[in-house]
């Protein structure tokens, strides 16, 4: 992999990336994924590099995925969650980051509730910054792992019809996926009740309020989580009606292509946005997504930290 294939110092979002940069990450992930199948899952690619995982929001999957990726590539890593840090004592994001930087890390992986928080760190810090989810803005590694999963199963991204269904308004996953899929030539359709669609989103992808229309002929359906606090936030009358009108049921899945893939960034609300039969059904690739998450994060670490050692 030449540096020119991914000429960025940070990964702040999918939006600024060229299709060739996305392909570079996916190809690198594909190459690195094989390491995960080895009996000894460790390569020295990032030996001597230090990565700080700075998580200001609860996260199981994303944080674990980054940590495993860091360990497999032999980076030294440290994870800080807000509940155990001096953030509880009122320290600002910038002060926390500057203090961590005094320990000379090569990279900070940041999860934060404020959109643009990674851009803020990128402006004021020396380290490479990876956005592990910022507010309702972007979650680039999630979109990359979704793309990797789709590409593995379908052999391509171009021309795929992908429905993204659920709380688009608050979803960074939706935004990153819309950017990525449209850049790569897939056809995206968004579906949600109008109260959960952000204004002007139709400039990025077509919108429907009918899930039947969204999933019709779909190659893939990405379900977005309805967060607990939204269920009582007045965005829709009841969970029962949401499931009845916008939930993914087996009957609705049958409108999609026969080999449709169902993706969900997790954690799922069974019986709300997705019926259990669908979540556990044969077309569900939700667990493949988790494995690919590690591979994609290995690729991002590798490309940004200029891994030089041979991987194979």
């Amino acid at each position: 992999m030449t540096p020119a294939a991914y000429p960025h110092r940070h990964l702040l979002g999918i939006e600024p990336l060229e299709p060739s940069h996305i392909t570079a990450v996916l190809d690198t992930a594909e190459a690195l994924r094989e390491v995960l199948d080895r009996p000894i899952k460790k390569v020295p690619a990032l030996r001597g590099k230090t990565v700080v995982n700075l998580f200001y929001e609860a996260s199981t999957r994303t944080r674990a995925s980054f940590e495993i990726a860091e360990k497999v590539l032999s980076a030294d890593s440290l994870s800080i969650a807000t509940s155990t840090s001096s953030v509880q004592k009122g320290e600002t994001l910038l002060d926390t980051a500057k203090n961590l930087e005094a320990m000379n890390p090569d990279m900070i992986v940041l999860r934060h509730a404020a959109s643009g928080a990674p851009h803020f760190l990128a402006r004021h810090c020396r380290s490479a910054i990876v956005n592990a989810g910022d507010g309702a803005h972007e979650h680039p590694t999630q979109a990359l792992l979704d793309a990797l999963t789709l590409r593995q199963k379908k052999g391509r991204l171009e021309g795929l019809r992908v429905a993204i269904v659920g709380d688009v308004l608050h979803s960074r996953v939706a935004r990153s996926n819309v950017w990525l899929l449209t850049k790569m030539g897939a056809e995206v359709i968004l579906c949600a009740p109008p109260t959960l669609l952000p204004p002007g989103i139709e400039a990025l992808a077509p919108v429907t309020y009918r899930i039947e229309e969204a999933v019709e002929g779909a190659d893939a359906i990405m379900m977005l989580r309805i967060q607990q606090e939204r269920m009582t936030g007045g965005y829709f009358p009841t969970v029962r009606e949401y499931h009845a009108r916008f939930g993914l049921t087996e009957e609705r899945v049958r409108r999609a292509k026969r080999d449709v893939l169902i993706l969900h960034p997790g954690p799922m609300n069974r019986g709300v946005e997705i019926a259990s039969e669908v979540a556990d059904g044969p077309y569900s690739v939700i667990l493949d997504q988790v494995t690919n998450g590690v591979a994609v994060r290995m690729a991002v670490l590798y490309l940004l930290l200029g891994g030089s050692e041979a991987v194979a």
């Binding site: 507010g135 972007e138 935004r175 002007g200």
Partner: peptide
């Protein structure tokens, strides 16, 4: 401001 730019940036907008 609420609108396409806020949507892209993931910031909450005032209409």
């Amino acid at each position: 401001n609420e609108g396409p730019v806020a949507t892209m940036l993931g910031l909450r907008g005032a209409p």
